[in-house]
């Protein structure tokens, strides 16, 4: 009995300790290299990973960003949304951060600073031709994954996610 309580307390404390940490790291756009990308792609989590590749210059990407934002706002208990910008790193201050501020994006935003796409693109998905928008959905528990190299229609993401969530 006491063991159970200790365990519960421990779990509670872990969650408690973790939650303020998330709020602290309020860096608007985190710049990552290929190692950071691999970390995101191999995240072990009970949550479904929804990873979207976009850029501020890509009109169809911008059009679908609200769908991801909505998921992030409404279903953060079962999903982790990561928006990976492929903008150029020297334009973080000038373009990406102002964009994120103006749109008040709340999802996790990272910028992948790896210009030689052919060196990393296959690690995301071998079928990826290299165009954006592109979206990867991963369930790290079951190993299920789906890669979409296309612009998503409204509601399409929810439909696809039904395959992932029981």
């Amino acid at each position: 009995m006491t063991k159970k309580i200790t365990l519960l307390t421990l779990i509670f404390l872990t969650f408690y300790a973790c939650s303020p940490k998330l709020e602290e790291s309020e860096e608007l756009v985190e710049v990552i290299k290929i190692d950071g990308l691999k970390e995101i792609l191999t995240t072990k989590s009970d949550d479904i990973q929804v990873i979207n590749f976009w850029a501020t210059w890509c009109a169809p990407c911008i059009k679908e960003l609200p769908y991801f934002e909505e998921l992030n706002a409404k279903r953060s208990d079962e999903l982790d949304v990561t928006l990976i910008s492929l903008d150029f790193v020297d334009e973080v201050e000038k373009k990406v951060i102002p964009f994120v501020e103006k749109r008040e994006l709340k999802s996790r935003i990272v910028l992948l600073d790896e210009i030689d796409y052919n060196s990393w693109i296959d690690t995301v998905d071998p079928s990826w031709s290299g165009a954006i928008p592109a979206t990867l959905i991963v369930n790290s528990t079951t190993g299920q994954r789906k890669f979409l190299e296309k612009e998503l229609e409204e509601g399409e993401l929810e439909e696809i996610l039904k395959e992932f969530i029981n």
């Binding site: 890509c58 796409y117 052919n118 290299g130 165009a131 954006i132 190299e149 296309k150 612009e151």
Partner: peptide
């Protein structure tokens, strides 16, 4: 063969 990075 390489991947042609760019716009759809």
């Amino acid at each position: 063969k390489t991947k042609a990075i760019g716009c759809t």
